[in-house]
Structures are given as structure tokens and as C-alpha cells.
């Protein structure tokens, strides 16, 4: 277990193929960091309230709110970043726009900038996160307000574009403060203070998407902190047994019947055949999972495996995932 300042990483960006567990893992990661005594900001940017559901708290707002306090003194603060609010805050801060902001809103300029102008929206969203990472306490001894920030980011299909604010903006804004802001954001994202974590299942498609994302992030000079293999199932059969089951060795059939009889279960052909078929499927899934795991381990990136929770995340087993993450090096 490490203290608040052991890792240089301040911003954890959690992405992955849709539905692989990004939101769940982002929440678990924030809990793991808070358990080390850190003050953590946990943010979502798509307004889906996924984090609130996973943590079972009231919907997150556009204002930061403490969600969880840890006995260690750590704490998780939640935020749902909203492009419109971010734009108005930004205009207020830099231009003291006041009432003009509402005129902008009335003529549809705010809508235009936040939902339509490509790229601008992403700069606003990630700009808000950037601000939180850099925010320091008031007073003489300035220290960061948040020890780390965990971002439940868009899926791998969009992550390159999302994080590549610079080029997105350079298409539309060649000079001006938005451009300058984009440059500062890019500096943070490319520095050792940022780590992108790729969540995947040990299945072919998500693993392929993970590999593609690693390539893409590499070309953008973004650092992949880890690959998180989520929903990993424990193989239940020993290797030599697995081989015998997969080969449909007749001895498996015999020993199963004998065993069932020994514990007083009335066997029939349907029961035995059913159990054997389930065994074959299980072995096949386990083999596929091991294959995909091996592909990831051949990469030069730490791979963390998180177990499949058979009762689902709602059952309060999120802490279990947080515990596993807390033990990982380099987080």
C-alpha cells in the first residue's frame, strides 16, 4: 500500500470498449485511491449518471459533491461534467460575461458550441477536468485540492478523438484562448501525470479493440498506464481434467456417473450429458480467456485481472474490485 504521493499519476483516464466495465472500474479505482487517504475527484462526461448508479448515490451534479469518505481520511468527490455549464463557467471566469452569457444562450450560440461545433465540446469537457487537476488550495502553502482525478471517459471508439483535443481544435480554432487552452491540456495529457487505463473483457473483440486503442494512443503520445481485464472467470477444472473433458474422454463419463451415485444422486443419461456439455463449454470459454489473456500479457504494459462478480455489481461487491485494484503496483 502506497501513500498519496508515491505515484506521479494525477489523472487516471478510464476507457475501454462499450459495456466492458469502464464506469464500474472508474468507481472502484476512485475507492481504491481514497482508501490510501487520497482526496479523489471522480468525474463522468457523458451525463449518463452511471457512476451514481454503481455507487448507489443520488445523481451527480455539475457541482462537486463528496460521495464517499474513507476512515483513512480519504474521500471521493463526484462530478458530472456538463459542456454547457463548463462553457458558461469558462466565459464567466475569463471574460466576466455576466448577462451576456444568457444572451449567448438565447440566440442558440451556447447550444451550437456545446453540442454541434465538433471538437469544442470535447475541449470544454476535458478542460473542466484539467482545471480540477491543476486546482490548488488558497493561502500561502499551495497544494493540490485533489490528489488524483479519475475520469470515466468515452469508449475506445471515441477516446483518441476525445483526448486529441489539440488537433480537433486546430481544425476549427487556429488562434485564440480556446487554442491556448487546448495546448495546455495536451501538455498535461502527454505528461507522466496522466495514465490511460484500458478496460477489456478477455474476449476476442474487446481485446482487439484494446490493441487498436493502444496503437492509436501511442501515435498521440499518450501513455497507457494499464490494461484492466475485467470479469475474469476462475477456471474450475484442473488442466489435465480440462483436456479430458474437452476430448470427451469416455472415462470422464464413467467417473462422473460413479461420483454422482456415491453421493446418492440418481443419474440418468440426460443429466450426465448435460453436465458434460456444460463442462465442455466451460473449458472452451476458459481456453479462450487464457488465449486472450496471453495476448495482453505479451504487451509491454501492466495487466490487472479483476474477477467476474457472479451476483453483479449492485450486490455491494464493488469494494472487492477496489481491493484488488488497491493492491496493484503503479496505480
Amino acid at each position: 500500500m502506497t501513500g498519496p504521493s508515491d505515484s506521479p499519476v494525477r489523472l487516471h483516464v478510464v476507457t475501454g470498449k462499450g459495456g466492458t466495465g469502464k464506469t464500474t472500474i472508474a468507481a472502484a479505482m476512485a475507492l481504491a485511491l481514497a482508501a490510501r487517504g487520497q482526496r479523489v475527484l471522480l468525474a463522468e462526461v457523458e451525463g449518463r449518471q452511471g457512476l451514481a448508479q454503481v455507487l448507489d448515490v443520488a445523481p451527480l451534479g455539475t457541482e462537486e459533491r463528496t460521495l464517499v469518505t474513507d476512515p483513512s481520511g480519504g474521500e471521493v468527490v463526484g462530478l458530472s461534467v456538463d459542456a454547457k455549464t463548463a462553457l458558461l463557467e469558462y466565459l464567466q471566469k475569463f471574460y466576466k460575461l455576466g448577462r451576456a452569457g444568457s444572451i449567448l444562450e438565447k440566440v442558440g450560440a451556447v447550444d451550437f458550441a456545446t453540442t454541434i461545433a465538433p471538437g469544442v465540446r470535447d475541449v470544454l469537457l476535458i478542460g473542466r477536468v484539467y482545471e480540477a487537476v491543476g486546482r490548488v488550495t488558497k493561502g500561502a502553502r499551495k497544494r493540490p485540492v485533489f490528489d488524483s482525478v479519475v475520469l470515466d471517459a468515452p469508449p475506445t471508439g471515441r477516446i483518441g478523438r476525445f483526448l486529441n483535443v489539440n488537433s480537433e481544435v486546430s481544425d476549427v480554432a487556429k488562434v485564440g484562448p480556446v487554442r491556448n487552452q487546448a495546448d495546455s491540456i495536451t501538455r498535461l495529457l502527454q505528461s507522466p501525470a496522466t495514465a490511460v487505463h484500458l478496460v477489456t473483457l478477455l474476449e476476442e473483440m474487446p481485446v482487439q479493440e484494446t490493441l487498436d486503442a493502444i496503437d492509436e494512443l501511442g501515435t498521440l503520445s499518450l501513455r497507457v498506464g494499464s490494461v484492466i481485464a475485467n470479469g475474469v472467470r476462475q477456471p474450475l477444472l484442473a488442466d489435465e481434467d480440462a483436456a479430458a473433458v474437452a476430448d470427451q474422454d469416455p472415462r470422464v463419463h464413467e467417473s462422473l456417473e460413479a461420483a454422482l451415485t456415491a453421493v446418492g444422486i440418481k443419474t440418468g443419461p440426460a443429466l450426465v450429458a448435460g453436465l458434460l456439455q456444460e463442462g465442455v463449454d466451460h473449458v472452451e470459454r476458459a481456453r479462450l480467456q487464457a488465449e486472450q489473456h496471453a495476448i495482453l500479457q505479451a504487451l509491454d504494459i501492466p495487466v490487472h485481472a479483476l474477477p467476474h462478480l457472479s451476483d453483479g455489481v449492485e450486490s455491494g461487491e464493488l469494494g472487492l474490485l477496489a481491493d484488488v485494484l488497491a493492491e496493484q503496483e503503479g496505480l
Binding site: 473433458v245 467417473s255 461420483a259 444422486i265 448435460g274 453436465l275 456439455q277 456444460e278
Partner: peptide
Amino acid sequence: AGAKQMGAGRAEDAAAQLEEMGGHDLAAAL
């Protein structure tokens, strides 16, 4: 489930029994 006849609870119990008896690892795992 392939073996619809048997519930999850019954299978758990039988597996535990077999593990205790020993010598039936494969069946217990199934």
C-alpha cells in the same frame, strides 16, 4: 443449463460432499 434437472444448491452440496470424500476431483469440479 445443460443439466436442467439439478438446481445450483444441490450441485454445490454434492460437490462439497465429493471433495470431502476425496478421489472425485473431476466430478466435483463439473
